[in-house]
Write a protein that binds this DNA or RNA. Structure first.
Lengths: 327, 327
DNA sequence: TTGTAGGCGTTATCAA
DNA sequence: TTGATAACGCCTACAA
């Protein structure tokens, strides 16, 4: 049985409503009374009961996060940052690893103040039929017109990268990515646009599909590409892990970056700084994504107006991993 | 504003206590009334308010999981299985990615029915000073005598592996693991016991410390070991990821498993079946761990007695990845 | 078989 | 500056 404000009241010899005020640091309580109450609360190990509080306040100061794919690494950094940002506004985050639909139901029963859904883990639900009294914010999927969505413009990102390479003179640019992944597919589209191509078949030698998104997949693709006799001068990589594989391949083949080969990698994470080679990257910095998500969540919880769709524009983060080419 | 039982009561033309009973499927309500109420509840999209319910029932049917390291892959499978098992008993799990101490505080405020702490992510807290009215179950750490702990006997696991290799004639057995990790250290102890050694310095060539627990660390260690002129006939690996790296190294060096080299890997996960090579493994099957954890959680929530410390014994899962050696 | 009333721990409103 | 009291949504005796 846990400690309640009534217990504290008894110990302090005051009424429990005074205790309540004291704990909320109300100016309506005298200093000495307050100090005394706080001390007793501390001694007794008092923890306010969220259930009771949210019942009367109709607020739980909690954000529910739908997280059906615990295995994924990339969003992990995001969620950590979001958690920290929300904490500063005294909100707590709670994750559910259940399927999107039942996770949302759970959070509705818990009366959290907002729900964040990571679209990257599509368990193929009709987002339009989702029932939720509680506002939802989506990341990485344009699913539901009722609720705001935050996403990254991956197409533009890769287009930016390819255009930049073209600007400094590159003509033989390869793209490495997993074309079975819809998000990666977006990136390919950007690549094709920049290269003025209609589809990937027009340039088979320079568009290298991988079997997955792991480091080793990138390694295989790069090894395959670079050991053939194709005059490639630059590579655009679809993700951080693929890039790590590509770098392993170039190092095995003793290729110097950027002298022998230019590389630009898609991604949003700061880990690139730990890589052997400093690379030019393109994408929305993860801190901006988490910032935007937190802002949106906070706004929606305070009943402030929020944009329906927020597409974050990527940036090119140029480091000397690309060298100009003279034809 | 969400739907309450009173709303349902109005629509159904009955009192709200009848609705409450109907929803809980009480035998005190007539079939037709029940059906009608259930139908209306469904239509209105009624979701019971956990806050209100747990206030009166003093139960939330929720287990809080302390999960400070979202990045880790191995425990992810565990938590998924535990979640599924608990769900069968109509419990929900909620994860917190905050630091252990504040996560426990949060769950206390939320009045969850039990807390599960994964010891693998040590953020160096004094577990003995943890204040929690709610029962805690620890996994992977023997931290606190007040609460039950479930753990795997890693030392015995590796000892089992080494002894088995010795039994089939191996004498030159190497151990690859990250010796800075306390859990890995346990494994080394088992190795040393089996090899009848006092410390790792007695056999430096056969004890290969890695810099971390990633695939690449295993790769480097194995490459380093195997390209020297050391007559090693068998390797024991400290984890799944390290093993993947080791396999990459052996494949690069065109070593055949088990003809040229025997390998036994520590771990508890079923992923091994997806590997290029079927390996002999040693550890507690992950399903047994999640089973035991769920059982313990359920027992402790029903106020049934539970053992204080539960050390699970590992098993050797012999596949033909080891071949006998004749001296 | 249904309805009424009291209470769970908290906050908020009013009265003292 | 404090204390009493009514909610919040739900469950459960007990009364009708």
């Amino acid at each position: 049985m846990s400690v309640t404000i009534k217990d504290i009241a008894k110990h302090a010899g005051v009424s429990y409503s005074t205790v309540s005020k004291a704990l909320r640091d109300s100016p309506l309580v005298k200093k000495p009374t307050k100090t005394k109450i706080l001390k007793i609360a501390e001694e007794l190990g008092y923890q306010p009961n969220v259930a009771a509080r949210s019942l009367v306040q109709k607020k739980s100061f909690t954000v529910g996060v739908v997280w059906p794919s615990v295995e994924r690494v990339a969003p992990a950094i995001l969620i950590t940052q979001i958690n920290d940002l929300l904490e500063k506004h005294s909100y707590t985050t709670l994750l559910s690893i259940n399927k999107t639909e039942s996770a949302i139901a759970t959070f509705n029963r818990f009366q959290v103040d907002a729900i964040l859904v990571f679209g990257e883990n599509e368990d193929a639900i009709q987002h339009s039929t989702i029932k939720s009294t509680i506002p939802i914010v989506y990341y990485g999927i344009q699913a539901n017109s009722r609720f705001p969505t935050i996403d990254v413009n991956r197409r533009i990102a890769i287009k930016l990268a390819a255009n930049y390479l073209q600007d400094i003179g590159h003509q033989h640019i390869a793209f490495i990515g997993d074309l079975t992944d819809p998000l990666q597919k977006d990136k390919l589209t950007g690549f094709l646009e920049a290269m003025k191509l209609d589809n990937e078949l027009e340039l088979p030698n320079f568009i290298i599909p991988t079997k997955g998104l792991e480091v080793y997949d990138g390694y295989l693709a790069a090894k395959n590409l670079l050991s053939q006799d194709i005059p490639v001068t630059a590579i655009i990589s679809g993700s951080y892990d693929l890039t790590r594989g590509i770098l392993r391949a170039t190092s095995e083949l003793s290729l110097k970056i950027p002298d022998d080969l230019s590389i630009i990698s898609y991604d949003n994470i700061p880990q690139f700084e730990n890589l052997e080679v400093q690379l030019t990257t393109v994408g929305v910095p993860i801190s901006r994504i988490s910032q935007k998500i937190s802002e949106t969540l906070l706004a929606i919880m305070e009943d402030e107006p929020v944009d329906e769709t927020i597409i974050l524009d990527p940036e090119l983060n140029i480091i000397d991993s690309c060298s100009p080419v003279n034809k």
